[in-house]
Simulated scan of single mutants.
Amino acid sequence: MMARAGVIVIGLCLVLYFVLTGQWAFLYLTSGDPVGIAMGAALIVLPLIGAWALVREVQFGVQAERLGSKLDAEGGMPAAETELSPNGRIARADAEPLVQRYAAEAEAASDDWRARYRLGVVQDAAGRRKDARASIREAIRLAKLTS
């Protein structure tokens, strides 16, 4: 729920940014000065890049949440096998063997989105966010192929 609230706040900030930069872009574009026109064009392009990035992140979040809910309903989410820290992370000593085990399972079932998603969950709990996002993106891709 906190993640959704964060996305909403960021989205609202982006809309405010669009309005303000749109005003500045208009002023620069109508200035007649070549440097001002270039700055106005940049003020139009940069928010579009930001909007694209926000849409991609929201799509990832929605798709990941949908797969996570489906896997949880099937009873396929990984169980907490070790003691977790207060922030939900796996202790460093326990993290690597767990990640390796789930990685081996994901490799053995390379076309199963469930195994890849479980790997992503364990990687996230181990503090390996970049790897976790890559694994969950792969799970999303595999789920689309099997649909």
Rank of each mutant, 00 (worst) to 15 (best):
G36V: 01
D72S: 14
L67E: 04
E96G: 00
L48Q: 08
A106I: 13
F26T: 12
L48I: 11
M77E: 13
L84W: 02
S69D: 06
E105S: 04
L98T: 02
F26R: 09
P97S: 02
P34T: 02
I90R: 02
R101A: 04
L98M: 11
L71A: 06
L84N: 03
I90D: 03
A109Y: 07
A80T: 05
R89D: 07
Y28F: 15
A73S: 10
A41C: 11
L27N: 11
R56C: 09
G68K: 00
G40F: 12
G76P: 01
P78V: 10
A104S: 03
S69K: 14
A93E: 10
V58M: 12
F26Y: 12
Q63K: 05
N87M: 15
A73R: 09
I37T: 11
E57V: 02
A41V: 15
P34I: 07
G68R: 01
L29Q: 05
E107S: 06
G50N: 12
E65G: 06
P78E: 06
L48D: 05
L27T: 09
E83F: 10
P47Q: 01
A93M: 01
R101S: 09
L43E: 10
E57W: 12
S85R: 14
L27Y: 05
Q100M: 12
L29D: 04
A42D: 10
A108F: 07
K70F: 00
K70N: 07
E81Y: 04
T30D: 11
S31V: 13
K70D: 14
V55N: 00
Q100W: 08
L71Q: 06
A79E: 09
R56G: 03
V35W: 00
V45E: 05
R66N: 11
A42Y: 14
A80N: 15
A93N: 05
S85F: 09
L27W: 07
F26K: 07
